[in-house]
């Protein structure tokens, strides 16, 4: 089974019109950032992730943890749309956020959810 970063990189093979005549190709920069986000999530202890290709060249990275769900849609403009759901209810919907927001949020979430612990003598993140 494909990892989420591998799935994201497979979008590079999508050609114009890939979805019933609709859909553009993907910029490598968008794919790389989405892969980075998925890898960061995994490193931080979020082991349930997925990714989906958008018709405008955007990539959606999704993160699942129990009854919580985070959705990051990276646009070719290098901004992102963020959604947070709990118990199937959308609690946050924000457009036009910078990519760094996603990394920062996931890091904070990992601490909040105690997904990893910081070793005292090093900055290495160790999954709990």
């Amino acid at each position: 089974m494909q990892s989420t970063p591998e799935k994201i990189q497979s979008f590079a093979y999508f050609e114009a019109g890939w979805s019933f005549g609709e859909g553009v190709g993907f910029a490598q920069n968008t794919l790389n950032k989405a892969s980075q986000l998925a890898k960061t999530a995994h490193t931080l202890g979020f082991h349930e992730t997925d990714a989906f290709p958008g018709l405008n060249g955007e990539v959606m990275v999704t993160v699942y943890q129990g009854n919580e769900y985070w959705e990051f849609t990276l646009l070719p403009t290098e901004t992102l749309t963020f959604v947070y759901e709990r118990d199937e209810e959308t609690l946050t919907y924000e457009e036009g956020l910078p990519f760094e927001f996603a990394i920062s949020l996931l890091t904070n979430l990992a601490f909040h959810h105690h997904l990893f612990t910081m070793q005292p003598s090093t900055t290495t993140l160790v999954p709990a």
Partner: peptide, 16 residues
Amino acid sequence: VHYDARKQRFTSLAFK
């Protein structure tokens, strides 16, 4: 490709 099996629904990318 826009179906999210975990959530058992289509993602918003399907209607955007």
